[in-house]
Simulated assay, not measured.
Amino acid sequence: MKTISDTHDTPKQHLFSLNRTTQQVIFILLLVSCVVFPIISPPVALLIGLVIANLFGHPFLHLNHKATSILLQVSVVGLGFGMNLHSAISAGKEGFLFTVASIFSTLILGLLVGKWMGIDKKISHLISCGTAICGGSAIAAIAPVVKSNENQTSVGLGVIFILNSVALFLFPAIGHWLSLSQHDFGLWCAIAIHDTSSVVGAANKYGAEALQIATTVKLARALWIIPIAVGSTYLFKNGKSKVKIPYFIFLFILALVVNTYVSSIAVVAPYFVTIAKLGLTVTLFLIGSGLNINKLKEVGVKPLLQGVLLWIFIASTSLFVILKLS
């Protein structure tokens, strides 16, 4: 199934029309720069990708979705080699009640807002699931279950990608403004930012402890794709649809176990973590380079407004609870 980031680019979708070879050279040079220069953080890489998409175009756009999916999964598994299992379990337990309450309240509110605004039922459900669980990954898993068409899936992904891009810059700024601790910020962004890539990117920018808590809580949250997808089959009466399970989460857990109990891994673990962070930077560059302004215009006002309202709800309520409990 194609998505908003999967279709071929055309000259009308960007400002400067260049031949394909020149496009490829510029794109590859910038991609390599994201790996070579440490000054390019994940948020900066996302911004560079957005600029390149709208100025020159993405010459490999048809490969973008698959590349970002694989890179993100590999990067998340690599980050597991920098974390301790006992700390991860502690963070996961603490975030469990937050996860359950925020997921179901967001899904219910999304259903009500979608009906109130007259948004297509499947688009509304995809946006709600993406906001409640884990962004594009949740939409990719739920879309075949509800049998959404290409346009419905693309609109859902477009809303989530727009808000993810904003979150990557906005959340660390708010965290510093409110003087949130590493712990509180990690928990907050895991609950309130949609995609795992943006959660990890924002938390990594904030600090090492925030990164560990955010990654653990977010991946535990992502496992809710399975029961929500099963529930969606009954809601949309598609009993024969298959649920796409995010198996890479179990590899992340395996990396945690190995890093905690196999002492010899300490020699190479830091290299795995460094490579994983570089992979995340490249992932966000690719996500940004797939967000052409003309494609984002296809999202429409109502679905975007629904996404914003749900995002404000989950971000503000989770932050309020975290501040109250800290």
Rank of each mutant, 00 (worst) to 15 (best):
E209V: 08
G158Y: 12
V51G: 01
L111G: 14
V32A: 11
F169S: 14
L284A: 05
I226P: 05
Q182T: 06
K277Y: 09
L304I: 06
F16H: 06
S87Y: 04
E94V: 01
A67E: 15
A202E: 01
S5R: 11
G300A: 10
V299Y: 01
Y261C: 07
I213T: 14
L305V: 10
N292I: 02
C189Q: 04
V258E: 08
S5L: 14
F169N: 10
F27R: 06
T99Y: 00
T260S: 12
S90I: 01
F16S: 05
A269W: 00
T99G: 01
S90L: 08
P43M: 04
F320N: 01
A315E: 02
C34D: 09
P270G: 08
I265L: 10
V159M: 11
W116V: 08
G136L: 06
E150P: 11
V257T: 13
V32L: 13
L111S: 14
Y261Q: 00
A173P: 03
F252D: 03
G290Y: 04
K93D: 00
K66H: 14
T283R: 07
K242R: 02
V35E: 00
P59S: 14
K122A: 12
A229C: 09
T196E: 00
V258W: 04
F252P: 05
K237F: 03
T274E: 13
T106C: 12
L180S: 06
W224V: 12
S124G: 15
G290C: 07
K2Q: 15
G290Q: 04
F27T: 04
Q182R: 07
F320H: 01
S326C: 04
G110N: 11
I174D: 10
T68N: 11
F27Y: 09
L323C: 08
S181P: 04
T153R: 12
V76Q: 09
A173D: 09
G307I: 05
H65M: 15
S90P: 00
S232M: 14
I245D: 01
T274K: 09
A132Q: 05
S232V: 07
K302C: 07
A45P: 00
N292G: 13
L219D: 09
P11Q: 09
S263H: 12
L305R: 08
N84C: 03
S326N: 15
Q24C: 09
A229E: 00
K2N: 15
L55M: 13
G95N: 01
L319C: 07
Q182E: 15
F98C: 00
I249S: 08
L15K: 09
V36S: 05
F285R: 07
G186A: 05
F27P: 07
T274N: 13
L157H: 13
S165A: 15
G135D: 11
V217Y: 05
F248Q: 01
A45S: 11
D120H: 12
V159R: 12
T216F: 11
T99C: 08
L15T: 04
P59Q: 11
T216Q: 09
A67Q: 15
T99W: 02
V146E: 02
